[in-house]
Nucleic acid binder design. Structure first.
Length: 914
RNA sequence: GGGCGCGUAGCUCAGCGGGAGAGCACCUCCUUGACAUGGAGGGGGUCACAGGUUCGAUCCCUGUCGCGCCCACCA
């Protein structure tokens, strides 16, 4: 028995358990050993994270694909796992330690700290996994991986060492984005510009050999800067070679104020005469452009503070060592212990005292910030490890150009190419503790030995030095995205040549958000193509299709964020409306070029849809419509049953085709319309006379068909609404012939041969008639059952009406159905598919109102005729338009003319009435 | 500066060459034997604007305006 109401919270947990116990989501089920494979690797959520709406969308999309392909008989692997999320996790644990007023990580040391992180991972790592299960995600949990588990760590080391040996990973001293709060380098992608109202300081640099006089412009050159504190590191002033104002100064020197350093005035195209004063100070160690200019002109790279000093002071942002010996002592002292912005004040004050500040203008600019720390990034000259991304990008670009990997929607490829073609070296070292420690060891002279293990490095070192030499391991860890880049093959067991690798790589699809195309997708492409080869040694892509989705926003269209307090918790939604309602809402609204707006109202509507489905199943059950062993829908005799079989096939094909093209909303909406507007609104209603009528062949057939179509509905909805469909599948299994499989493993039906145009025409006519009568009744406010007279209709219509009389009476609330040559006096008259239908309503209808109504209908018909005549009267249209269009227009005209004729007669007849 | 996308009913969005659709909201009616988390009916739109291509443009092209996002730069 199906319960009166569906309570998602009561059944979802149980259903999920059933799936797990049956091993329904396991890849490599023996009975599918020879089946085609289908694989998706999950975008690994942060191990310490919890499910947000973005996850809900991302994973529902993947689940729809996986469940659909599983039902289509494929051997599906949805590879789950979590990411160690270096910076994020380290920050979480550090914050927790601070809240508990425990000693800091530097106090307890690396080893103790890492123990704490692992403990935290053990404690909270399962959260996200359980939340994904609540969403219904059909991952193969037996294969769950973690980016820092042993196997994946081995993969990371191997990749690092091999790329190093190929020269594609190298150590370099260049400017990096330094995060002064986290005290680590970060990659370009982790820097976000923040629009800020700043100032532009115009500083006077005295020219060598002249006595500085604020009133004599020939004694100094003005440079404009947004960061006056960096002047301590200036090693040149650049002007544009064509700038007449400064031509005479090129080659001369200025004496850097406060510091006293002699620095050259150089000519370089980088200088823009339009900006600032046209002369720009060059600080090679603290600005990316200046770094390049400095290299061109051999300028000194002067750090205004040193990493060592900062590390020692644990982030006090102190200026310490590193200032040149000739620095103004006062300035140095003022810097000591002050942060960059305090230093700026001090320096500006010192310069102002000396009359060296010409003016300060307000100036808007985008200041780079760290995406995690949210502090201003300091370009900083340090030794870091880099990946030669430019080289690795080449095959990754080609693979997409050749269409071996395709983006859906395709326009993201432009974004991908644009970034890949301009890719910069990828800084992969991080001055953190939580992550994969770089497999590099240093000898006493600083020589580096990169190896897969310490002993291997030691052996190499001993060979090199000719004696046993103590080595020191590189303290840095790798960027989290380095291990993520290997995810599609590391999770499958690489570097071992596993069965999984052979069977599931390249994976079928990747589903991810546009915001990590660069962070993740591009890098997986690079690493996958470099390390994975097919039998012939050709590079292998990590995935064939990349489906890119957008954001989930709140009901008013605002981006969800903790600070705004508008975050909708998917688990709260699941508690209230059920996972199916949330999933279906997301799927019905996901569109390639739009973010999704999600309001509770939408979820409620889809919860209502689930209820509708539930009640349809109850109706079927009440009416004894159980599944019948070996029932073949093709064998149906009743037109109504042939019609629903026809519609079912159509809907099932629509849904399958749409999922196949990643058109999730189209698929979900096709299923929605079929279930609600076809099956419930018409089939269930029209089947009532048959199901409540006398026992017999027709009744049996209708019962079997109703149950059969319901089964098909459960299948077509299952990828979207796995819980309620599985539950109904289970309950209905009790009623018909034995059925052992879970719906999750049931085969997607390959319906064919059910198309029936006659049934469609006939039922279409019935539906139109009922709708027209209902419409008229509502318009004229008639609440009682009324008689219906077919006026002078052809024999075919008459026969049809006879066949459907009972149905029409019931659904259109008609008391009696009869025929006559002409409509009775005082009838309301409507035209249904060319047939005149009269509703004799003497004394009931308002003749004047009916006249007005008819006139309105006639106007419509006349307009239709005019429109078509205008077209058909156009020679060029007749000459150029395709034949079927012209024929269509002619049909339209004939239909309208016929309708007009009947309506005119109807109006004529009404004249006699009072 | 470069790129991508979007302006269609009050709202959220489909449609993307042959006289505009859905859901929600709104109005009217209906507790009829699956479902009031429901049923029936209805009103509501110069498809941003201007040109062009075409027999025909919401749909294709060009431009304008407005909105959003990404990349680069910002002395």
């Amino acid at each position: 028995m199906i319960d009166k109401t569906y309570q998602p919270s009561d059944v979802e947990g149980r259903i999920y358990q059933t799936w797990e116990q049956a091993g329904a989501f396991k890849a490599g089920r023996p009975e599918r050993a020879s089946a085609e494979t289908y694989a998706i690797v999950i975008p690994p959520p942060n191990v310490t994270g919890s499910l947000h709406m973005g996850h809900a969308l991302n994973n529902t999309l993947q689940d729809v694909l996986c469940r659909f392909e599983r039902m289509r008989g494929k051997d599906v692997l949805w590879q789950p796992g979590t990411d160690h999320a270096g910076i994020a996790t380290q920050m979480v644990v550090e914050r927790q330690m601070m809240e508990r007023q425990e000693p800091s990580r530097r106090d307890i040391g690396r080893e103790k700290f890492l123990e704490k992180v692992w403990a935290w991972k053990a404690e909270s790592g399962g959260t996200i996994v359980n939340q994904l299960k609540r969403l219904g995600a059909s991952c193969d949990w037996s294969r769950e991986r973690f980016t820092m588990d042993e196997g994946l760590s081995q993969a990371v080391v191997k990749v690092f060492v091999e790329l190093y040996r190929e020269g594609l990973i190298y150590k370099d001293k260049r400017l990096v984005n330094w995060d002064p709060k986290l005290l680590t380098a970060i990659s370009d992608l982790e820097v976000v510009p923040v629009e800020t109202k700043g100032s532009l300081w115009h500083l006077r640099y005295p020219i060598e050999g002249k006595t500085f006089d604020p009133d004599d412009k020939s004694t100094y050159i003005v440079v404009a800067t947004t960061r006056p504190e960096t002047m301590l590191g200036d090693s040149g002033v650049a002007v544009h070679p064509d700038d007449e104002r400064y031509k005479v100064l090129v080659g001369k020197h200025v004496i850097l104020p406060l510091v006293g350093r002699r620095i050259p005035i150089i000519a370089d195209e980088y200088s823009d005469p339009e900006k600032g004063s046209g002369a720009v100070k060059i600080t090679p160690a603290h600005d990316f452009n200046d770094f390049e200019v400095g290299k061109r002109h051999n300028l000194a790279q002067i750090n205004i503070f040193s990493v060592e000093a900062k590390l020692a002071l644990q982030g006090n942002e102190a200026f310490a060592a590193g200032l040149p010996a000739s620095a103004d002592l006062d300035a140095t002292l003022a810097m000591h212990g002050a942060d960059r912005f305090a230093a700026r004040k001090t320096i500006v004050a010192r310069l102002e005292e000396k009359g060296l500040v010409e003016k300060i203008e307000p100036h808007g600019l985008a200041v780079p910030h760290g995406d995690r720390s949210n502090v201003v990034i300091e370009p900083f000259l340090t030794d870091q490890w880099y990946v030669n991304a430019h080289e690795l990008a080449k095959p990754a670009i080609t693979a997409v150009r050749d269409g071996r990997t395709t983006f859906v929607p395709k326009n993201w490829e432009a974004t991908y190419f644009n970034w890949m073609e301009n890719i910069q070296p990828w800084c992969i070292s991080r001055q953190l503790w939580w992550g994969h420690q770089i497999p590099a060891w240093y000898g006493p002279d600083g020589k580096v030995f990169v190896a897969t293990s310490e002993s291997e490095a030691q052996t190499e070192a001993d060979r090199h030095y000719g004696t046993n030499t103590a080595l020191k391991r590189d303290e840095d860890v790798l960027d989290t995205w380095f291990s993520s880049a290997l995810w599609p093959f590391s999770t499958l067991g690489w570097p071992e040549n596993t069965q999984e690798l052979k069977r599931f790589y390249p994976t079928s699809a990747l589903v991810t958000g546009f915001d990590i195309i660069f962070f993740w997708v591009a890098r997986m492409m690079m690493m996958g193509l470099h390390f994975m080869k097919d039998d012939k040694g050709a590079p292998q892509i990590p995935f064939k299709d990349v489906y890119i989705h957008r954001l989930v926003r709140d009901a008013s269209g605002a981006k969800m964020s903790k600070s705004k307090g508008n975050v909708v918790d998917p688990l709260g939604i699941i508690d209230e409306f059920g996972a199916d309602a949330l999933r279906f809402t997301l799927m019905r609204n996901v569109a390639p070029s739009h973010d999704i707006r999600l309001g509770p109202q939408d979820v409620e509507n889809n919860r209502n849809f689930a209820t509708k489905l539930w009640n349809a199943a109850r109706f079927v059950e009440f009416n004894g419509a159980a599944r019948v062993e070996g029932f073949d829908p093709k064998s149906a005799k009743e037109t109504l049953n042939r019609w629903i079989a026809h519609e079912t096939q159509k809907a099932l094909h629509e849904v399958a085709a749409a999922i196949g093209e990643y058109k999730f909303a189209e698929a979900a909406n096709a299923a929605y319309r079929f279930v609600w507007n076809v099956y419930c609104d018409w089939y269930v209603e029209l089947s009532k006379p048959l199901l409540t009528g006398p026992d017999g062949v027709s009744k049996d057939e209708t019962r079997a068909m109703a149950a059969w179509a319901l089964d098909e509905i459960l299948k077509m909805l299952h990828p979207f609404m796995p819980f309620i469909t599985e539950e109904l599948w289970r309950v209905t299994a009790e009623q018909g012939p034995k059925r052992e499989t879970l719906l999750a493993l049931a085969p997607w039906s390959k319906l064919e041969g059910l198309t029936d145009d006659n049934a469609e025409t006939e039922i279409g006519w019935v539906i139109d008639l009922i709708t027209a009568v209902r419409s008229l009744r509502a318009e004229m406010n008639i609440n009682v059952n009324i008689p219906l007279v077919l006026a002078g209709v052809p024999a075919e219509t008459q026969a049809r009406a006879d066949r459907w009389a009972e149905f029409i009476k019931r659904l259109a609330r008609v008391s009696e159905l009869s025929s006559a040559a002409t409509p009775p006096q005082g009838s309301a008259q409507i035209v249904v598919r060319g047939d005149l239908v009269a509703l004799p309503l003497v004394g009931v209808i308002d003749i004047a109102a009916e006249r007005t109504r008819l006139a309105k209908e006639m106007k419509k018909a006349e307009d239709d005729i005019k429109r078509v005549d205008a077209k058909l009267g156009n020679e060029k249209f007749v000459a150029n338009a395709p034949e079927e269009i012209i024929d269509g227009e002619k049909e339209k005209r004939a239909e309208a003319a016929d309708r007009l004729g009947k309506l005119t007669e109807a109006l004529e007849r009404l004249k006699g009435a009072v």
